[in-house]
């Protein structure tokens, strides 16, 4: 079977396009870096792809709020293409700045479980870290096993770096959170690594630096009601191999014992991308 075609957006300050394309290729995708303007101008069509990735970076310098200006370009110019993409059951991921873009286009969290397809209304935001600082540090993440998210199936807990200054997830009211929680859309949270696996998730805000940004309910990432659109602040692509984990010289970097691509050296982050590729292959 032909490898799923993955469009990895780049341009205007997206920075993580090379590695995001690389990790999809490692797990059997056929990733191509496509300049945003090629979709905007109609040179290229989203229809030709089966997965869309919006990588991390500093689109437009994050001026006027992270992801805002890139979100606007997509919201105004790609509205119909993006709606059709999700309606066709194709997965979308936004990482870091890409997550911020998806939130500001309104793709995340999206309307509701009853009417899950995108309406491009912004319902949440990612704002400045409580610390006031951009920081690069490693965090521990735990995933909701019940989440409809197709990207996170079977993943319990991973270590990942965060690298952002605006990662605090906020929504106007607790009922907004409750609605997402009821549908298991609060897919991934920052947790205290000393808790038992599966018991780490809590709504009570964790102290810095366990939660690096003061996110409400410790949210690191969410999905839409279809489970196809997923966004998160941390960088799973940055731990595609164990040699990228800070503990690797201590011989304690976590991850699968063996893999078809990197042998004993596969890192914990790669499974997210493999899940999407396998999902596409399984649903053709």
């Amino acid at each position: 079977m032909a490898a799923p075609k993955v469009a990895v957006l780049f341009g205007f300050g997206i920075n993580c396009d090379h590695e995001t394309a690389a990790v999809f290729n490692l797990v059997g995708g056929d990733a191509e870096r496509v300049h945003v303007n090629n979709f905007v101008s109609g040179n290229r069509s989203l229809d030709d792809f089966e997965i869309l990735a919006v990588p991390g970076g500093f689109s437009f310098g994050d001026h006027l709020g992270s992801g805002r200006l890139m979100g606007n370009r997509m919201r105004f110019a790609l509205r119909d293409q993006l709606h059709a993409f999700v309606a066709a059951g194709k997965p979308i991921i936004g990482i870091c700045n890409g997550f911020q873009v998806l939130v500001k286009t309104g793709l995340l969290p999206g309307p509701s479980a009853q009417t899950p397809l995108p309406d491009f209304v912004q319902r949440a935001s990612l704002t400045l870290n409580d610390s006031g600082r951009y920081e690069d540090r490693w965090v521990t993440l735990e995933f909701d096993a019940e989440s409809p998210c197709i990207w996170t199936k079977g993943i319990e807990r991973i270590d990942c770096p965060v690298r952002h200054g605006e990662g605090k997830f906020v929504m106007p009211s607790t009922t907004d959170f409750d609605a997402l929680a009821a549908n298991n859309q609060l897919t991934v949270r920052y947790v205290d690594p000393s808790t038992p696996v599966g018991k780490g998730m809590t709504d009570r805000p964790l102290p810095f630096p366990l939660s690096p940004n003061g996110s409400m309910r410790n949210i690191a990432g969410i999905c839409d009601a279809t489970g196809l659109v997923f966004g998160l602040m941390p960088h799973p692509e940055a731990v595609y191999a164990k040699w990228l984990h800070p503990d690797h010289t201590r011989n304690t970097a976590p991850g699968p014992l063996t893999s078809d691509v990197l042998g004993e050296w596969e890192g914990e982050g790669l499974q997210i991308f493999r899940n999407a590729v396998e999902y596409v292959l399984g649903n053709r």
Binding site: N15, C16, H18, E19, A22, V23, G56, R133, Y134, E135, D136, R137, W138, P161, R163, H235, E237, A238, V239, Y240, W243, L244, P246, D247, H248, T249, R250
Partner: peptide, 22 residues
């Protein structure tokens, strides 16, 4: 130093700060 992104491009094996507590 932590305010510099030292890991973009997903290639940094030894980071500016190391050890159990990094």
């Amino acid at each position: 130093v932590r305010q510099y992104d030292h890991e973009v491009i997903a290639q940094t094996v030894i980071k500016p700060f190391v050890g159990v507590e990094r």
